[in-house]
């Protein structure tokens, strides 16, 4: 394996809306329980009982799956879900905060809010993943992750139930990896292990 060109990955953040749960169901089984980094997920339109979703995802992956709690430190090998009706943010001390600030792009939790705060907290050691969705929340946040030196992954629009969210990100900047859900899991595992970052950045935005 080649020398990693960047500091080791410290965290992964994932966002999506319509169609993202299906994508996630393809991604998480590929992640090992020993994943050396935490994963924080914002999905719009969560079912009423997020504990139900925790159980569903928990069945699919060896990762520990739970709702993120206020001031909870982010731990490796854990997938955290944002609670409905609260924004989820990452503090510089690498713990979560919740907030009831105004919805962003009609969304609470908002993907931009998670991505922006995580980019500030983790800089180049963050990887952001944007999945299927029918609005543009997340595109600006993913660009922020990119601008802070982090790695960006977008679900290939042709594989997405709703293309708008991935397309908005691809239109905004040169995304590092554009690929299908079945390949995102192995890619994240590789990145988390300190492996390949991206092809040269300029090559990014394709679908």
């Amino acid at each position: 394996m080649t020398e990693p060109k960047h500091p080791n990955l410290a965290a992964i953040v994932v966002g999506g809306s319509a169609g993202a749960l299906e994508a996630l169901a393809h991604i998480v089984p590929a992640l090992p329980g020993t994943l050396p980094v935490p994963v924080a997920v914002v999905l719009h339109m969560l079912p009423r009982r997020p504990s139900g979703l925790c159980a569903v995802l928990g069945e699919l992956t060896p990762l520990r799956v739970k709702e993120a709690e206020d001031k909870e430190p982010l731990a490796p090998g854990t997938l955290y879900l944002a609670s409905p009706n609260y924004h989820l943010l990452v503090e510089r001390e690498h713990c979560f905060s919740l907030s009831m600030d105004e919805p962003v792009l009609f969304s609470r939790p908002s993907i931009d809010v998670l991505f922006d705060s995580a980019a500030d907290a983790y800089g180049p050691t963050l990887c952001g993943v944007l999945l299927s969705g029918a609005n543009e929340d997340g595109a600006a946040g993913l660009k922020h992750i990119h601008d802070a030196g982090g790695t960006t992954v977008v679900q290939a629009p042709h594989s997405a139930t709703s293309r708008q969210m991935p397309a908005a990100a691809l239109a905004a900047f040169a995304v590092d990896h554009v690929t299908t859900p079945d390949r995102i899991g192995p890619l994240l595992e590789l990145l988390a292990a300190g492996g390949e970052r991206a092809e040269p950045r300029a090559e990014g935005a394709r679908s």
């Binding site: 924004h87 943010l89 990452v90 503090e91 510089r92 905060s97 907030s99 600030d101 809010v113 922006d116 705060s117 500030d120 907290a121």
Partner: peptide
């Protein structure tokens, strides 16, 4: 105050 959301505000 928790900084991340305070920054947004």
């Amino acid at each position: 105050y928790a900084e991340a959301s305070l920054r947004r505000r």
